Computed example of a mutant assay.
Amino acid sequence: MENITNNEIVIYTDGGCSGNPGPGGWGCVILDGTKETTLSGGESPTTNNRMELTAAISALRAVCDSPELKCRPVCVYSDSQYVKNGITSWIKNWKKNGWKTAAKKSVLNKDLWEELDILFNSLSVEWKWVKGHAGIKYNEICDSLCQEEIHKRM
């Protein structure tokens, strides 16, 4: 079990698809210090970025829906710079600019960003990036869950 300090919940997430767009899947592992919970799902057709976002949303929703977990600090590990940078940095300007990018284009996946933003702001969340496909145990589990979901939709 991951070394969890300060009553922290540790979450790993991953999403992907076969083709972009194509059949997609997502997976997450929630470590609360006493147990490991895995969640997964998918869509077809979808994009890699939508599945990465859905993995994070699903994990944080599970924490928010649990009276025992929702008051604890959370650390989310994602191999997606898009998710990590989007929620910790880019989203501030997107909202300020009416959901437009710096290039004045509409933000893609706005529906998911809005949902992730609500969850993020209702919890105490720290985001960390991890290298994908680098042998990190829980990231690899998430990738396996993701691949299983993709194959269900092919």
Rank of each mutant, 00 (worst) to 15 (best):
M1H: 08
M1I: 11
E2C: 15
N3D: 15
T5G: 09
T5Y: 14
N6Y: 04
N6W: 03
N6H: 09
V10N: 07
V10W: 00
T13C: 12
D14A: 13
G16K: 12
C17D: 01
N20D: 00
G24T: 05
G24K: 06
W26S: 11
W26C: 00
G27C: 01
C28S: 15
V29H: 01
V29W: 00
I30E: 04
L31E: 11
G33H: 02
G33K: 10
T34E: 15
K35Q: 15
K35T: 14
T37F: 02
T38I: 10
L39S: 03
S40N: 05
G41C: 00
G42L: 00
E43Q: 11
S44F: 04
N49K: 02
R50K: 08
M51I: 04
E52S: 00
A56V: 02
A56W: 03
A56I: 02
A59V: 00
A59C: 06
A59W: 02
R61S: 14
A62C: 05
A62D: 04
V63G: 06
V63L: 04
D65S: 07
E68P: 01
L69E: 02
K70T: 08
C71K: 14
C75K: 13
C75G: 01
C75P: 01
C75N: 09
Y77W: 03
S78F: 04
S78H: 02
D79W: 03
D79T: 03
S80G: 01
Q81Y: 07
G86N: 03
G86E: 00
I87S: 08
T88R: 05
T88A: 05
W90L: 12
K92I: 15
K92G: 15
N93Y: 09
N93L: 09
W94L: 10
K95I: 15
K95V: 13
K95N: 07
K96L: 12
K96G: 07
K96S: 09
G98Y: 02
W99S: 10
T101D: 04
A102G: 12
A102I: 03
A103Q: 13
K104V: 08
K105Y: 02
S106I: 11
V107R: 09
L108S: 15
N109R: 12
K110V: 15
D111S: 12
L116H: 12
L116D: 13
L116S: 14
D117G: 07
I118E: 15
L119K: 05
L119V: 09
S124Q: 15
E126T: 15
W127M: 13
K128P: 14
K128Y: 13
H133T: 14
A134R: 10
A134Q: 09
G135N: 10
G135I: 09
G135W: 07
I136A: 15
I141M: 14
C142Q: 06
S144T: 14
L145D: 02
C146N: 07
C146A: 08
Q147Y: 07
E148K: 11
E148V: 09
I150D: 06
H151C: 10
M154I: 11
